[in-house]
């Protein structure tokens, strides 16, 4: 059933006598003097390769060979152009490359390049909760990234929920928002809903609302701290954390599910989700060296 297994390559593997289609015709050939064809040859081990094919089938093999060869060349060329920096060809034919690569072959291998990330970006959140008694209360800041960090510490197999979820969600958020924190396009709205749902989930786990309380609004801020330069370096950079605070977001009763359903405008290509997906293991986002904000 499977196209694997004992046929062809497994059992036979006949060393074909001639190397290519041009060489010696197989016994199927018509006898030169028009005599009746010779009796079928005794059962030989199954033969393989184009040399074992009659001319008619060799045409089929040649077509298959050409198709496969062309597809491979085009695909490899496209992958190359996709991972290469913007250049003469991609400036002119970038759309063709994108059409070929997205959505399934998208990739990004700028691993820790051109520069590794040199800042710790922590995401913090606080909430406005309605307590069981009906009072409105504002909680302190919860450092969700520190929670992630503690979960990762001494953990040989960190979960994607600890290592990627919040980190990449915030990355996606900053990529789809302008410097004033306003969403850019549909993706901006998507990323905002996503980030809000993550922080609400985490606040629930931390029991921020207290027994019987509900989270009504959340506020997110990021704290960016430069990694101190190595001890042997004479570099001087500011280690003072830089905060960026978002506006308060109200939390819908059903926690946003369906709230943004109407926004799905079928825009064309997916570049942001694209670059976001594969921004590889080490969070390839880079700032200019030493550019701790």
């Amino acid at each position: 059933m499977d196209a694997y297994g004992g046929h062809g390559t497994q059992s036979g593997g006949a060393k074909t006598p001639g190397p290519g289609p041009a060489s010696g015709p197989e016994p199927e050939g018509v006898a030169p003097d028009g005599a009746p064809p010779p009796p079928p040859a005794p059962p030989a081990p199954p033969r393989t390769g184009v040399a074992a094919l009659s001319p008619r089938y060799q045409v089929g093999a040649a077509v298959a060979l050409a198709l496969v060869a062309i597809t491979v060349c085009v695909h490899l060329g496209m992958v190359f152009l996709h991972v290469a920096p913007s250049n003469t060809i991609t400036k002119a034919h970038g759309e063709a490359v994108d059409d070929w690569m997205y959505p399934e072959f998208e990739q990004n291998w700028k691993l820790f390049a051109p520069n590794p990330l040199q800042q710790n970006i922590a995401v913090e959140v606080r909430a406005q909760v309605r307590t069981a008694k009906g009072e409105i209360r504002t909680t302190g800041w919860y450092d969700l990234s520190a929670e992630d960090g503690r979960a990762i510490d001494h953990n040989p197999v960190p979960s994607h929920t600890q290592q990627n979820e919040l980190r990449r969600a915030f990355d996606y958020f900053t990529n789809t928002h302008d410097s004033d924190g306003r969403p850019v396009g549909v993706r901006g709205t998507l990323s905002e809903t996503y980030l809000r749902r993550i922080v609400v989930l985490r606040l629930e786990r931390d029991g921020a609302a207290g027994p019987g309380g509900t989270v009504e609004q959340v506020q997110v801020r990021s704290r960016t701290t430069a990694v101190p330069p190595p001890s042997w370096s004479s570099e001087q950079i500011s280690l003072k954390p830089v905060y960026r605070t978002m506006p308060w977001w109200s939390v819908p009763a059903e926690d946003g599910a369906g709230a943004d359903r109407t926004q799905a405008v079928g825009s064309a290509r997916d570049d942001v989700a694209g670059s976001a997906r594969s921004e590889a293991a080490g969070s390839a986002r880079t700032e200019a060296a030493g550019g701790a904000r």
């Binding site: 700028k110 820790f112 390049a113 520069n115 040199q118 960090g149 990762i152 980190r167 060296a289």
Partner: peptide, 25 residues
């Protein structure tokens, strides 16, 4: 791409990921 990065040029690049909270178990 690394060749283009100043940290890979000055020989300190490997130091930094080791000090990111998300990548230092």
């Amino acid at each position: 791409y690394k060749i283009q990065g100043s940290r890979w040029q000055d020989g300190t690049a490997v130091y930094y990921p080791l000090h990111l909270d998300y990548f230092s178990p």
